[in-house]
Nucleic acid binder design. Structure first.
Lengths: 342, 342
DNA sequence: TTTTAGCACTCTCCTTTTAAGACTGCTAAT
DNA sequence: ATTAGCAGTCTTAAAAGGAGAGTGCTAAAA
C-alpha cells in the first residue's frame, strides 16, 4: 500500500493530467499545488510510483501520466466526493418528461448521455430473460471432480467439470441436488444467478460448485441475450485530445459498430447489477485501451432488465461521470416503472 | 458542348483520377493511354477544360482533378456500360435468403451495401403515406396570380401563391377544380405527386399551377415523412484517401449522426421514384462536398415505399456503384413483395 | 492553323539542420 | 531525509535546402 505522501502525489498527478492532458512534472506539482516538498523530493516519489506501476513516463525528459493501475487506484481509493452539476441533475430529470415509445425513450437516454458529457452513450436493449431452470444435476467423477449439468426450460443443456478441494460424499451430493432444485426449479436464470452470487447465502454449497454453477448460468444467459444496443454520439468523442489520430479513430469506430462487442460489455454490467467501471486494458479490447467505460443498470419495478453506460477517454472526470451515469440509471428506472410498471 | 478530343481527355482524366487519387498530368495521359497527342497538346486542352470548369488544378505545378461539373459530365455523358461484378450480383441476390423481420432485413441491406462497397449504406424506413387528398381549391387573386389550397385527410391545410403567365377565366378555374378533385379526391398524396409529375398527363393544367401543386404536395409529404434511417459502415469510409484528415472525419460523422439530414436526402429520391445521383456540392451539405450519393427506391408490390442508397467519396467507380445500388433496390423490392405482398 | 519540343519557373514534399525548452536523474551538500 | 544544481536526454517547432513533378509559354515544325 502506498504511504500518505505517495497517495497525495498520485492523486494530484491524476487530477492534473485529467485537466491538462499534459504529462505532469515534479516542478508543476510543487509549484502549482504548493505541496511543501521540493521538486527533487517529488521527483523521487514519482520515480517510485513509476517503479510500482502507477505512473508512466512517455519519454525520458517528460513528466508522468497515470497508468491504468494509477487510474484504478485513483478511482478506488482517491476519489473526491461525487460531484453532480445542477445541470446534470436537470438533464437526468428531463427523462421524466419523455413519454415516447419504449424504444424511443432508450434511444433518447443514449443521446442524453452523449450530449451532456460529450462522450459516447450506450444502451443495452431490455433483456427478456424468460428462460427458467429445469434442473441441476451432478455426476461424481471421483478423484474430487464433478460434472455440473444444467438444463433449462428452452431445452438447452450445458455442463461443466469442476475440481473440488474437499471431497463430498454421495449423500452430500444428493442433499445438495435436492436443495438446489427445490429452491431454484422454474426460477429465472437471471434470478438464480443473482441469488447465488450474493456473498451471504444460507446454503451449504462448496465454493467451487457455486462458482461452477455461476459460470454455467452466465454462459447460458450470455448466449441467449438480446444483442441490440443504441450507440449515440460517436462524433462527439472526436473532439477529445486522445482521438486526434486518424488510425485510433478508425479502430475505435470499427469496434463501436460491432453491436456484439458493445452489447457484451453492457451485458456484463447487467449481470453484476450495479455501477461498474472498466479502465483501459481492463476492458480487454485493445481498440479501447485509451477509454474507460462506466455502466449501470436500469430496471422495471423490481426487475433489472438492461443496462446503460458511457464510453469516454480514460482521462475523464470520474467523480462526475460516475455520479451522472448512476443518476441516469436511476431516473430511467423510475420513469420506466412509472410508465409500464404493473 | 465539348468536342470529341476534349471529351476523351476529360473521360480519361476522370477515370485515371478515380483510380490513382493523384492529380492527372498531361504526361501521364499521353504516355499511359497512348492517345497520340503530345503532352503539350493535351496540356492546352486541359487548360481549356479548366477554364470551362470541368477540371481543377490543386496548385500551379500539379496535374488536374475533376471538378463537380467534371464528374457530372462524366456521369451523364461519358460513362462506360454499367459493370456488375459477379460477386456484386451474388451479394444482392443473397437478400433473398434473409427472412428475418422487416426491420432486420432493411438493416441487413444497409450493411450489405457498406460491406460490399466499403462505402456507407443508408436505408430510409418505409413511408406510411396514409394521408390522402381531401380537396384542392383555388382563389383567383386577379393580376394573374392564384392561391392554391390543399387540404388533406389529416386536416392539414397548406397553400401557395403562384403567378400565371397566361390568365385564366373564372370558368376555366372551375373546370380545373372539378377535374382535379374528381380525379384525385381520396387518393394518396404520394400517388398524386407521382401522377402529376409524369411528363405526359391527359389534363389541361397550366404548368405553373401544376408545379405549385407539386410543391405543396412535396411540402406536405416531407413534413409528415417517417424520419427513421439505418446508417451502416461509417467506419469503412475512413479507409478511403479523402478521409485521412481528422477534421473532415469529424464534420462527416456529425452529419451522418443527424438522422433528419440523411432521411431528407433519401426522401427526395423516394419522391422522384428512381435512381438518383448527387455529386459533391449538388448535395447542398458542405460537410459532404467530397462525397457522392447514389439512391434508389424500394417497393412493396406496386407501391414505392422507401429508398436506399450509398454515400461514398466522389472519387468512386460510378459504373459499378450505380449498377449495384439499382440492383439492390430491385432485389429488395422483390424480396419484400414476396414476403409481405398481398 | 495546329501541334510539338524545349525550357524557365513554380510549388510540393521530404530531409536535414538548428535551436529552444522542458524534465529528469544523479551527485553532493544541507 | 531532503534539496540545490547541473549535465544529459528527448521533443518540438522553425528554418533551410534540394529533388521532383508539372505547368505555361515561346518559338519552331508540320
Amino acid at each position: 500500500m502506498l504511504d500518505e505522501r505517495k497517495k497525495i502525489i498520485l492523486k494530484i498527478t491524476v487530477k492534473d493530467y485529467i485537466e491538462s492532458a499534459q504529462p505532469v512534472s515534479s516542478r508543476i506539482l510543487a509549484k502549482k499545488y504548493l505541496l511543501g516538498w521540493s521538486p527533487a523530493t517529488i521527483r523521487n516519489e514519482m520515480a517510485d510510483l513509476e517503479e510500482e506501476g502507477y505512473l508512466i513516463q512517455p519519454h525520458t525528459s517528460a513528466g508522468r501520466i497515470p497508468s491504468d493501475r494509477g487510474y484504478r487506484f485513483y478511482v478506488d481509493f482517491l476519489l473526491d466526493n461525487y460531484e453532480l452539476y445542477d445541470e446534470d441533475i436537470e438533464v437526468a430529470n428531463s427523462i421524466i418528461f419523455y413519454s415516447i415509445d419504449w424504444e424511443g425513450l432508450l434511444r433518447k437516454v443514449a443521446e442524453l448521455i452523449s450530449e451532456r458529457t460529450a462522450f459516447i452513450g450506450v444502451v443495452l436493449f431490455p433483456q427478456l430473460d424468460k428462460t427458467t431452470l429445469k434442473k441441476i444435476e451432478f455426476i461424481d467423477l471421483k478423484e474430487d471432480a464433478v460434472v455440473i449439468i444444467v438444463t433449462t426450460s428452452t431445452g438447452v443443456v450445458k455442463e461443466k467439470i469442476v475440481r473440488l478441494s474437499n471431497s463430498m460424499s454421495e449423500e452430500e451430493f444428493k442433499d445438495l441436488r435436492i436443495e438446489l432444485n427445490s429452491r431454484f426449479e422454474n426460477r429465472k436464470l437471471q434470478e438464480i444467478y443473482w441469488t447465488l452470487s450474493k456473498e451471504k447465502i444460507d446454503l451449504k454449497i462448496p465454493i467451487e460448485i457455486k462458482n461452477g454453477i455461476l459460470d454455467v448460468l452466465q454462459d447460458l444467459l450470455y448466449t441467449e441475450r438480446e444483442e441490440g444496443v443504441f450507440v449515440a454520439g460517436v462524433s462527439k468523442i472526436l473532439q477529445h485530445l486522445e482521438f486526434q489520430n486518424i488510425n485510433k479513430v478508425k479502430t475505435l469506430l470499427n469496434v463501436l459498430e460491432e453491436e456484439k462487442i458493445i452489447s457484451s460489455l453492457l451485458f456484463t454490467s447487467y449481470l453484476r447489477k450495479g455501477l461498474t467501471i472498466l479502465i483501459g486494458e481492463e476492458i480487454s479490447i485493445p481498440e479501447l485501451n485509451d477509454c474507460s467505460i462506466i455502466t449501470t443498470v436500469y430496471s422495471l419495478g423490481e426487475n433489472t432488465i438492461g443496462s446503460i453506460g458511457m464510453i469516454g477517454p480514460k482521462r475523464m472526470k470520474y467523480e462526475r461521470s460516475l455520479a451522472f451515469v448512476e443518476l441516469i440509471g436511476k431516473t430511467l428506472s423510475e420513469r420506466l416503472t412509472q410508465l409500464l410498471g404493473d
